[in-house]
């Protein structure tokens, strides 16, 4: 188990190095950072001076190693555009993104679990058919378009909800729905499939043979077992939601790190972009690693492989 954990952690670390290396090279291809920093009116001498000051004239792998070394201590340098420390900028905004991600995944679970459970209890019923429609249409609906339509209907026509900013809880309602609905088809399918399997299991028959009430059979004995894989999948979807937050935060002007990455890309603010890519990648890697280790812990055979 320990050997397995070490092996997997090492692989995860290697992945992060490759991902950050690729992003680093890519972003340094994109624009001459010295030009970005110096601004449009700068003279050639100024630019040259900045190049030497920041060390942009050195080979790219040296620059990368230097950046990576500092990144490991949580130092991502300074924003070219705002001059602020990148770590500070991210620290101030990551809360918004995390809240959005958590709210969105909760929204998805609140919709998908009851729907999946009822669909599983009565296959082919009206509810089941409705669940199917939600799944089929949900998967084809472009997130950002859905967000825009919500803004038009809920924000502009009916004026129920604010359409931009992050000042109050109400500002999070539409972004949460827009980001969360996309995970519902997958989570609902898993709930439904899991419930159908569990409801047909021997221990549910035992529970019924004990004369327990249908409510206890359903909630105590069935749901708990069916829900474990759903929660695991939800944790993983949380990672995807952070990626989706770029579009949603931009649309709703919600100033989290998704919005920050969009803003930074517009301004070729490389240190910010690199830091956010690394954060997203690390989150993915950590979630995967955690899921793998939990699986290995639950099923000792895995680590032997």
């Amino acid at each position: 188990m320990l050997a397995y954990a070490i092996k997997r952690s090492f692989a995860a670390f290697l992945i992060l190095i490759v991902v950050s290396g690729l992003t680093f090279s890519l972003s340094h291809l994109s624009a001459d950072p010295a030009l970005t920093i110096a601004g449009e009116q700068a003279s050639d001498e100024d630019i040259q001076a900045i190049r030497e000051l920041y060390g942009f004239d050195r080979p790219i792998y040296i620059q990368y190693l230097e950046w990576a070394g500092r990144a490991m201590t949580g130092d991502f340098g300074e924003s070219y555009h705002y001059g602020e420390r990148v770590s500070t900028m991210i620290a101030g905004r990551i809360g918004t993104t995390m809240s959005l991600g958590v709210l969105a995944i909760l929204f998805a679970l609140i919709i998908s679990i009851p729907l999946g459970v009822v669909a599983a209890m009565r296959p082919n019923s009206l509810v089941d058919r409705f669940a199917l429609l939600v799944a089929v249409f949900g998967q084809a609906l472009p997130t950002f378009w859905f967000a825009l339509m919500m803004i038009i209907v809920l924000g502009v026509w009916w004026r129920w909800l604010p359409i931009s900013g992050n000042d109050s809880w109400a500002h999070f309602v539409m972004p949460t729905i827009a980001l969360g609905y996309y995970a519902t088809p997958a989570l609902m399918r898993l709930t439904r499939a899991g419930m159908i399997e569990v409801l047909g299991s021997d221990y549910i028959r035992t529970a019924r043979a004990k004369g327990l009430s249908p409510t206890v059979v359903l909630f105590k004995h069935a749901l708990r077992n069916a829900i474990i894989p759903v929660v695991a999948l939800a944790a993983v979807w949380f990672g995807f939601m952070l990626g989706g937050s770029i579009v949603i935060e931009t649309i709703f002007n919600l100033k989290g790190i998704g919005w920050l990455s969009y803003d930074a890309l517009l301004r070729s603010d490389l240190p910010v972009v690199q830091a956010i890519v690394l954060i997203f990648a690390s989150l993915y890697v950590v979630l995967t690693l955690a899921a793998d280790l939990v699986n290995a812990w639950l099923d000792p055979r895995i680590s032997v492989r």
């Binding site: 021997d202 028959r205 035992t206 043979a209 105590k220 708990r224």
Partner: peptide, 29 residues
């Protein structure tokens, strides 16, 4: 069911709920 008439099944490996202790499952009935 489970009170005046009760039943024992064929598959002991799968007839107990894996999520609860046997104490819980015994006391429950």
């Amino acid at each position: 069911r489970g009170g005046a008439m009760s039943m024992i099944f064929q598959e002991p490996m799968t007839s107990l709920n894996p999520a609860y202790t046997i104490g819980d499952q015994l006391m429950e009935v």
